[in-house]
């Protein structure tokens, strides 16, 4: 019995279907007034600008 359960458990474990591996997160940002769905299409200068933005406290 014991052996059997272990066996079944193992089987289930190997059958767990994983989704989304390799997929990144989408990061939408505004650049010169337009939104861009992914940072990859920014040119180098704008990528640097986006990286260096600091938040403005609203207090």
């Amino acid at each position: 019995m014991l052996l059997d359960t272990q066996c079944t458990d193992k089987k289930v474990a190997t059958e767990v279907k994983m989704v989304g591996a390799g997929q990144g997160f989408e990061r939408t940002r505004r650049i010169t007034g337009y939104l861009v769905g992914t940072l990859e299409r920014f040119n180098n200068a704008k990528r640097a600008e986006e990286r260096e933005r600091v938040k403005h406290g609203a207090a």
Partner: peptide
């Protein structure tokens, strides 16, 4: 830096309150 600040904006990397 790799860019010049947009038009009359305060530089994006400068710490400043929104108001």
């Amino acid at each position: 830096k790799d860019y010049y600040t947009n038009s009359f904006h305060v530089p994006v990397s400068f710490s400043i309150a929104a108001f």
